[in-house]
Amino acid sequence: MSHVITDACIGCHICAKNCPVSAITGNIKEKHVVDSKLCIDCGLCGRLCPKSAIKDAQGQTVAKLVKDKWEKPVIDQSACVGCSVCAENCPTGCLEICAPRFHGDIRTIAELSRPDDCIGCHICGRVCPIDAISYKSN
């Protein structure tokens, strides 16, 4: 599974610069390509692409979206068990297991520690084994 870049690409290099796993390569003003072996389907390239030249793994064009509209994860505090699967899979490391709130805290859970780094990829929600993550945009 991987995102693909269509012929509408103008080679602006924005996607390549922002790809969290360095999966996109290409010269400026030439069509870029996604390495399917590295792509994690975060869709950031599509949200940034000025020409909407990116299709997701299902073949749907990814809509351009301004950063403020990106949906950020909201963690259900009562459901989360702190298994850290979301944090491990987060491509930008903006999710973390929180620090203990008091000495001997045994209920440390995931939190969006650096919301500005969140790219709205929804990977955390996809991998969460117990559906404790929902999304909302600002």
Binding site: G82, C83, S84, V85, P100, G104, D105, I106, T108
Partner: peptide
């Protein structure tokens, strides 16, 4: 160990037990 030295409970990936 828990009272004097433990800073934080850690767990393996995917584990709720920690």
């Amino acid at each position: 160990l828990a009272e004097k030295y433990n800073i934080v409970n850690k767990g393996c990936l995917t584990c709720p037990i920690k």
